[in-house]
Design a protein around this nucleic acid. Sequence first.
RNA 1: GACCCCGUCGUCUAGCCAGGUCUAGGACACAGGGUUUUCAUCCCUGCAACACGGGUUCAAAUCCCGUCGGGGUCACCA
Length: 490
Amino acid sequence: MQIVTRFAPSPTGYLHIGGARTALFSWLLARQTGGKFVLRIEDTDQIRSTAESTLKILEDMKWLGLDWNEGPEVGGPAGSYFQSQRLTIYCAYADKLLEMGRAYKCFETPAELTAMRDKARADGKTFKYDRTGYRLAPEQVKQYEAQGRPFVVRFLMPDKDITVHDAILGDVTLRESELEDFVIVKSDGFPTYHFAVVVDDYSMQVTHILRGQEHLMNTPKHIALQEALGFGHPVYAHMPLIFNMDGTKMSKRDKEKAIKAGKPVPEIDVHDFRMAGYMPESLLNFIALLGWSPGGDLEFMSMAKMIELFSIERIGKTNAKFDREKLRSFNMEYIKNADRKRLKEVVKQFLDVTDYPLKYADDVMLDKMLELYQPRSRTLVEMAHNCRFFLTEQVEYDSKAVEKVLKKEGGAGILAELAGRLEQVEPWTVETIEKCIDGYCAETQKHISKIAQPIRVAVTGSAVSPPLYETLDVLGKEKTLKRILQACKL
RNA sequence: GACCCCGUCGUCUAGCCAGGUCUAGGACACAGGGUUUUCAUCCCUGCAACACGGGUUCAAAUCCCGUCGGGGUCACCA
């Protein structure tokens, strides 16, 4: 039997990093077995869903390289992959349940329900819907409907315990007393998540459902629905959750908080990581290791390797904390080891959506930058930021570096002398530059470090840069001399 | 609060299911050292964990129970 997995985000914002992991695992499972990966947009919340979010999510999925066999843009046999466009399907099933007596209409208002919940809480009890709607006489229901009173449809839960056979957690049994008749159709006529998800997973022939553990307690509802509708059950696999280092949830609000506090803004959504200069393959590799491991000491894996090694059995049960330090380290490793062609592609993609001076560099210059910065960048942001002195006319001088290196060690005298020497260098290559400066060191009995640093600061504005001779070579003779002379005046 | 899930270095984890080969391995971070014109890379060394208490057993990180701790869920949100 063909394995069909799915990822079903609700379009209420960017693709969350946790969602990305869910999508990745589902995708891996499908790809490994030659099955199908379905993307479905769960936009039954009319208030919060936006078309813009859908576009963003699709874009992030593409950036990650998680392609789908059925879903938005590609279509598929199930019809629309937007739940908001599948209303007639849900209605048909809701009617069927109503006819079977497995569902019933309720006329309580949200306010009334809230009041009942509050009262139960005040009494120290757990609220459970009392099936008032179920006991309504048919005439009464008709009368309410004639009055135009809004209603919801609730599913009549069977009076029995329900066991979830989870592929990760094992059997989890929920007592009948813990289960209540939940809403399947809202008063606006839209299905609730629980109802739509069951109907869609059935019609899209989904065989394996991977999702976060926060859904575990929902699963008995879905199982009961499947039984009532005669659907059969997919395999469920509830994955451990991902948190911040301090144990709190990774939420969009973390970003707002950081901005208010004037702190660095943490990456939360896939889009954030993209803008922060991570490569999709390193992000994917990193999040794959949150809650899953191929076993042994293996950490760095290509997508092909991950597809080969992935298995639900090896997904762990314990929640993980998202360590951005380790991600950075992963990313550096990926940048360092990427072949130049791929790196260039990623860098160009990155520059397309950001605004660094490097964006305006020509291809030859970009190659030179990559040569210099590939081994020393943890992120693309770092790379673009650190190489900007090559691309801008004005050097931004780091005051500390000027103070410490230029004023103390070098002095305008040495720099002026050096400028004179360098002016004679012809042609301008790493070798000739080296020869010139080495010669100066030998003649003046000065250690190279006493010479290199002042030049570096003069030319780059910073005490830190790629190797000096390469830097000067790439910068060019004209700019080098100009900057050295300019620095003499500081 | 009720119900459910989980508990190996600071963090991600291997080992657990099929108990001995575990004085618990790897990675990130951290500390020290080496290479180096700065930075980074690279190399070496170090620090650091089986939550606790009972049991079963010749033997427990591995099996069982309890305690404690962490998390999730309790919507006409998904």
